[in-house]
């Protein structure tokens, strides 16, 4: 069956799951953390009948300090760079144990969760291997807060151009991060896997339905989630959802899906807000000059246009 045709139970405003969260309160994420919000909603969409695997990082540290855990499903953390490899092992084990009758004959996903560093930098090799090997019930979620926040806001390959971090500092000869954000969804899609999606917590139903769809589709899935970090972005703690709305409405982070190589633009931004309005509440961009912002705007328009054209050229 085509990935686009695989049925799954959609969450609507009316059917939003009101029961107990799959991620318990009492975790130690910062005030207003957009990453833990995304995680909470993604897990809520799946319930608790699945296995979660975490890479080392903010989410792992703040949810799993002995003797407590926030996770209400079986959860495993091993190390930083290998969430995809660990999840590969779990998925293969569950598959073979099911086949041998040692587990009930019912599919469930194995969900690997990692940050941008654990995905795009140190974890890229393990992720590429896992996607290429085509594990059946494998979902990889990158919660992208655009720097190494757990260790103190160091730049990663997902840090956007111009952002001030502790290792891409603004100085006499530096305007902050001097490279463009690595396009992880494109890299994931290049593996030819059945499902790739981007998501943002402000569009919570879209995000939650994407992980449900990923769970329903057989074969590896990659979901790249925008995860605002008020602490690391020098932003007011109440703005996580607001910024995850602005990032989409400014075309900086287009919401789209790639189903068997066919592109769907989930949210066409007809009247985009300027990039300048998106970056304004974030202290990490405070130093940028008009010409820098114009440069970013051009790049944003180009990248957004590529996805639009792909969705027109290769529709579902």
């Amino acid at each position: 069956m085509r990935a686009a045709d695989v049925p799954y139970e959609k969450i609507t405003a009316k059917t939003f799951p009101k029961g107990q969260d799959s991620l318990a309160s009492g975790h130690r994420a910062c005030q207003g953390c957009g990453e833990v919000l995304a995680l909470r909603l993604l897990l809520k969409a799946l319930g608790t009948d699945f296995i979660a695997v975490s890479a080392t990082g903010c989410m792992e540290v703040c949810t799993g300090t002995f003797p407590q855990s926030a996770w209400r499903m079986p959860w495993l953390h091993v190390a930083f760079e290998n969430a995809a490899a660990v999840a590969s092992g779990v998925e293969s084990a569950c598959h073979v144990l099911r086949k041998k009758g040692k587990l009930p004959d019912k599919r469930f996903p194995v969900v690997a969760v990692a940050g941008d560093g654990g995905t795009a930098d140190i974890g890229l090799q393990a992720l590429s291997g896992a996607l290429e090997r085509y594990h059946r019930d494998f979902i990889y979620v990158c919660l992208d807060n655009e720097a190494y926040m757990n260790t103190g806001i160091q730049r990663s390959s997902e840090t956007p151009f111009g952002a001030n971090t502790t290792t891409s500092p603004v100085g006499k000869d530096s305007q902050g991060q001097n490279t463009w954000k690595k396009n992880m969804p494109a890299i994931a899609a290049a593996h030819g896997i059945p499902y790739v999606a981007t998501a943002s917590p402000a569009f919570h139903l879209d995000m939650m339905n994407k992980i449900r769809r990923a769970a329903a589709i057989e074969g590896p899935a990659y979901i790249h989630v925008y995860a605002p970090c008020p602490t690391g972005w020098r932003m007011k703690p109440e703005l996580a959802v607001e910024s995850s709305r602005l990032v989409v409405n400014s075309k900086v982070f287009p919401l789209y899906e790639v189903l068997d190589g066919h592109y769907v633009m989930n949210r066409k931004v007809e009247k985009p807000i300027p990039v300048a309005d998106y970056i304004k509440p974030q202290g990490r961009f405070r130093h940028l000059k008009q010409e820098d912002i114009e440069k970013i705007q051009q790049r944003v328009d180009l990248e957004y246009d590529k996805i639009v054209r792909l969705s027109e050229a290769f529709p579902v």
Partner: peptide, 20 residues
Amino acid sequence: LPAGFRAKPGSTVDFKTGDW
């Protein structure tokens, strides 16, 4: 110590973050 250094699911509810 529990074998394998494990924790019970959802047990962070014992850690009250309200005083932050």
